[in-house]
Nucleic acid binder design. Structure first.
Lengths: 330, 330
DNA sequence: CATATTAATGTAATCCGTTACGTAAAATAT
DNA sequence: ATATTTTACGTAACGGATTACATTAATATG
C-alpha cells in the first residue's frame, strides 16, 4: 500500500508538506504543490483516512437509523439528509434497525466508538432516559418521530393539526361515520393523530365512538384487516382515515373485496404521501409531510451540533399539506 | 474522553492487558479479567475503534451502493446482506448513488480510503474497465445487475429464462399480441429480459413486432405513458409484459384510464415482486427473485473475498419464480 | 549592511489500540 | 532438587496522517 511516506520520498519533500497539499493548507509553494500532486497521481495514492480520522478524532460520517428502508416514506427524507450532508463534506450511513432495540443499540456503538460523528433517529426505540444519555455526549437529532420531553433536538410536523385537517376534509364531504385505523405503539405521532381525529369530530358536533378505532401495525395486511373489521361491525361507516398510506391502501383493497366502491361508497384518507399514493387505484388522498425539507433540516441541525460541540437543542416544526385525490372525491 | 490508558491505570495493569480483555485474547487470569471488566463498566469506557482500525487496517464495514432506496425491490436484498453481515461482525453502510456516476465514485472513495473493507454494487454505473480496476485491488461483488465480462463476482438470477417464462405464461392464457415495456439502458438484465420476450414469442410461432416494444425508465409515469402509447397504436394488444413492477403498475393504471379492465381485457405481468405487487388492485402477476437469498449470497461472497484477501471470483445464479396473481387471471 | 519579517519546509510528538517480544513467577516434568 | 514449560503479565514499536514548533532561506526595512 502506498502511504504518505512513499509520496514524500518520491517527491523529495517531508510528509508534512504532503499533508499540507492534501488538505489545501497554506505554506506550500506553487511549484512544490504541483510536483506533489503529480507524484500523488502517478503513484495512484489514496490517503488512508483511518490515520487522519484518528488524529482529528472525527470521521465526517453520520448515522441515520431508520426502522426499515422498505417504507417508501423515508426515501425523500433520506435524500434531503444526503444532499445537505454532501454539501458539507459528510457521508451518510443508513442503518436498518428493524424497529429492534438491540439492533438500534448495536448501531449506536458506531457513535460511541467514534466511527460516526452524529446520529439522526427516524423513530427511536429506546426510552427517553437512554436517549437523553446519548444526547448529552453525542450529536443527536430526532426526525419525524420523537420522544416527548427528551432533551434532544427534533424536526417534525404538527401531527395533531394534520390529522385534524384530514378528518375535517372528510366531514366537509358530508361524512358523519368515520373510522380510524391507528396503531398501538408509543409514538407521539400516533397519539397526536388520534387526538386530531377526536377533536375534528367533536368540533363538528359528531360524537366520538370508540368502536370506530381499529389498530394495525403500519402494514398493508393490518390495514386490510382493520378495515374489514370496521366494515363488518359498523355498516354505517362511509369513510376511513388511516394514519399511514400503506394501511390506507390495505383499507381500499378491503373495501373492494366487500363490494364497496372508493370513493363512491367509502372515502379513504391516508397519511405520509408515499410515492405510491398517486399511483394507486384510486389515487390516495393523504397528508403530505415536507419530507425533503425535514431531511435537510435534520441534517443541518446535526451539523450545527457536531461543529459547535453540543449545545444547540432546537425543535423545529414544518408545515404539512392535505393532498386531495380520488380516494375521497371523484 | 476515557482511553485505554485511563482504564489501565485505574485497574492497575498495562494497556496490553486491557487490550487482551477487550479482544478476548488468551493470557489474562480470570481474576484480572473480572477486575478490568468492572473498571471498564465503571468508567463507562468505549474503545475508540479509530485506533484499532488503523492498527489492523480494517474497519469491519462494507459499502452497499444502490441506485435509490425508493425502489422497494432493494429492501429484501438489503435485509439479506445485513443479516449475514451482522452474523459475521460486519456493519453495513447503505449509499444512494442516484444512478449518478459521480456519486458512485464519491462513495468508492470510502473504499480507497480504507473506511470500508469491501463493496456490493446493486447496479454499477461505471464501465467494465473501471470496475475491473476496483475489483483488482478491493473486495467487490455485483448483486442482481452486473457488467458482462467484468472480472468481478456477481450474484443474480437468469433474467433470460425468467422473462421467457413470464411471456410463455401470457401465451398460455391465449394472448397473441403482447406488448413489452422495457428500458433504454445498458443493463444486462434489460437485454436478457428483451431476449427472453422475443424467444418466447418465436418459440410459439408468434412473429416479433418491433412496434410492440416501448421504453420507460422504471418509473410509474414512464410505465403509464408506455402503456398508453401501446394501447393507442395497437388496439389488438391484449397483454403487456413490463420489466419492472412499478412500470407494470403504471401500465395497469393506463389500462383503467382507457376503459380497459385488467385482467378481463388486458393481462399484465411485471418483474421483481416488490412488496406492493400483492397490494395492488388487481394484485400483480410478476417474476419473483429470491431477494433475501441474493442478498445473503452476495454478502457471503464478499466476506470470503475480504478474508481471503482477493482471489475467489465466483458467479452465482439463483432460481426465480413466476407468481401468478389477478392481473393475468381472475 | 544589519536586523526584522515572511515564506517554505522539516522534525517529531501525537491520536488510540494492537501485538511482537521479553520477563518473571508459577507450574510441571524429570 | 533441578530443568523445562506454561502462565500472566509488561514494554515499546507500530499503523498513517496531522500539526505545533523549529529551522532555513529569502525578502523587506531602517
Amino acid at each position: 500500500m502506498i502511504t504518505i511516506k512513499d509520496v514524500a520520498k518520491e517527491a523529495g519533500v517531508s510528509v508534512a508538506t504532503i499533508s499540507r497539499v492534501l488538505n489545501n493548507s497554506p505554506g506550500v509553494s506553487d511549484e512544490t504543490r504541483e510536483r506533489v500532486l503529480s507524484v500523488i497521481k502517478r503513484l495512484n495514492y489514496n490517503p488512508n483516512l483511518l490515520g487522519r480520522n484518528l488524529r482529528r478524532m472525527e470521521t465526517k460520517m453520520v448515522l441515520v437509523l431508520l426502522p426499515t428502508i422498505s417504507n417508501p416514506f423515508y426515501a425523500r427524507i433520506v435524500k434531503g439528509i444526503e444532499d445537505v450532508a454532501q454539501k458539507n463534506g459528510y457521508g451518510v450511513m443508513l442503518c436498518n434497525t428493524d424497529s429492534n432495540i438491540e439492533r438500534e443499540k448495536m448501531y449506536l456503538e458506531l457513535l460511541k466508538n467514534r466511527l460516526s460523528d452524529g446520529v439522526i433517529f427516524m423513530a427511536p426505540e429506546m426510552n427517553k432516559e437512554e436517549l437523553n444519555e446519548i444526547g448529552e455526549k453525542y450529536a443527536v437529532v430526532q426526525c419525524c418521530e420523537y420522544k416527548e420531553g427528551a432533551n434532544v433536538s427534533h424536526v417534525s410536523i404538527d401531527n395533531y393539526k394534520a390529522s385534524y385537517k384530514a378528518v375535517k376534509h372528510l366531514i366537509g364531504l358530508g361524512h358523519r361515520h368515520i373510522g380510524l385505523i391507528s396503531c398501538k405503539n408509543n409514538f407521539l405521532s400516533t397519539k397526536h393523530r388520534e387526538e386530531g381525529y377526536k377533536s375534528a369530530l367533536e368540533d363538528s358536533g359528531i360524537p366520538f365512538n370508540p368502536g370506530y378505532i381499529r389498530y394495525g401495525d403500519y402494514s398493508f395486511k393490518s390495514g386490510f384487516r382493520a378495515a374489514q373489521g370496521l366494515l363488518n361491525d359498523h355498516k354505517e361507516i362511509t369513510a376511513i382515515f388511516a394514519i399511514s398510506d400503506i394501511m390506507a391502501i390495505g383499507a381500499i383493497k378491503a373495501c373492494y373485496e366487500n363490494g364497496l366502491k372508493v370513493p363512491d361508497d367509502i372515502g379513504i384518507v391516508g397519511f405520509d404521501n408515499i410515492s405510491f399514493a398517486p399511483m394507486y387505484n384510486p389515487s390516495l388522498t393523504t397528508v403530505s409531510q415536507p419530507k425533503y425539507d425535514i431531511g435537510c433540516t435534520a441534517m443541518e441541525l446535526l451539523i450545527k451540533q457536531i461543529e459547535n460541540k453540543g449545545g444547540n437543542k432546537e425543535n423545529i416544526v414544518l408545515e404539512h399539506e392535505l393532498i386531495i385525490r380520488h380516494s375521497t372525491v371523484k
